[in-house]
């Protein structure tokens, strides 16, 4: 039996998340991945923005930094560049990472700084009561889309890859062993890594889709039915993939990491003329 208590601030529990929320599943996955790395807890800096997912660092026993809405990656960049020995992990919701934090997201990808970003993608603003986010499915109802959502959503993994992230994975809160592995692989990757976790918020989102979901279990089934592993997706025609999403380690390349490059710059200037 895995001992989570060694990584939790046990006195801070119970957590604030609703029954049926996927965040707790991801928290446990994150802790198992951290344990597998063997990193010293004093060397881990866990950073978040604002939202339900961003309350996660408060429960984890390491250096934790709960910043302002959307700004986690900016703070994390400062931490990493000031002290490159830290293992810097950012947890962020879809609204936090992709709407208000969208600019920071694409630039962190481009810089390829050695930070792991876990995006808790439940497709809604949960903490404020179910307003539509950049990943709310078109047609769904939301507190600010009472007549149905008319905007298209982001393909988070494609966005990360396009912006220059060197490791991109997508998992779900249903496929937990795979998620453990994606998060662990992201931690081991040198460079900016993104793990998008498709999950659900029944309380503020699911309940509004009366014909789609009867309970949070239906939202888990939605993840199960729509997730297509990368290998299988390669054998499928585009029309077969319509309405589904591909999971797995979708993109992994090596490219010089930002803090290393900066250290190289510092070294190259040593002994040079002033």
């Amino acid at each position: 039996m895995f001992d989570y208590s060694a990584y939790l601030r046990n006195e801070k529990l119970p957590h604030i998340w609703c029954p049926g929320c996927g965040h707790g599943i991801i928290l446990k996955s994150l802790i198992r991945a951290i344990a597998k790395t063997g990193w010293d807890k004093d060397d881990i800096v866990l950073v978040s923005g604002i939202g339900c997912a961003s309350r996660l660092p408060g429960y984890v026993d390491c250096n934790t930094l709960h910043t302002a809405h959307g700004r986690a990656l900016a703070f994390a960049t400062g931490v990493k560049l000031a002290k490159p020995k830290f293992h810097v992990i950012v947890v962020s919701g879809d609204g936090d990472a992709l709407a208000i934090g969208g600019n920071h997201f694409i630039h962190a990808c481009r810089r390829n700084i050695d930070i792991s970003l876990i995006i808790f993608n439940n497709g809604i603003y949960g903490m404020t009561g179910g307003q539509y986010s950049p990943t709310t499915p078109q047609g769904d109802k939301a507190a600010t889309a009472p007549h149905g959502h008319i905007e298209p959503d982001f393909d988070v993994a494609a966005l990360a890859k396009g912006a220059g992230a060197t490791f991109v994975a997508r998992g779900t809160s249903y496929h937990v062993p795979q998620l453990d592995d994606y998060i662990y692989q992201a931690f081991m990757h040198k460079g900016f890594s993104v793990v998008e976790v498709v999950e659900a918020c029944y309380t503020t989102h699911g309940r509004k889709q009366k014909t789609k979901y009867k309970s949070n279990l239906d939202m888990m089934k939605w993840q199960k039915d729509r997730a297509v592993p990368l290998a299988k997706s390669r054998e499928m025609k585009p029309e077969e993939l319509a309405g589904k999403f591909v999971t797995g380690i979708l993109h992994e390349v090596e490219r010089p990491e930002y803090a290393d490059r900066y250290a190289g710059l510092v070294t190259s200037l040593k002994g040079g003329d002033k």
């Binding site: 900016a74 960049t77 400062g78 920071h104």
Partner: peptide, 21 residues
Amino acid sequence: IQMEDEIASLGAVIGAALAGA
């Protein structure tokens, strides 16, 4: 570091300061 905007600039500054800079 030149950041992507002024919000990010101060964010990075605060992060660095917490790390001891």
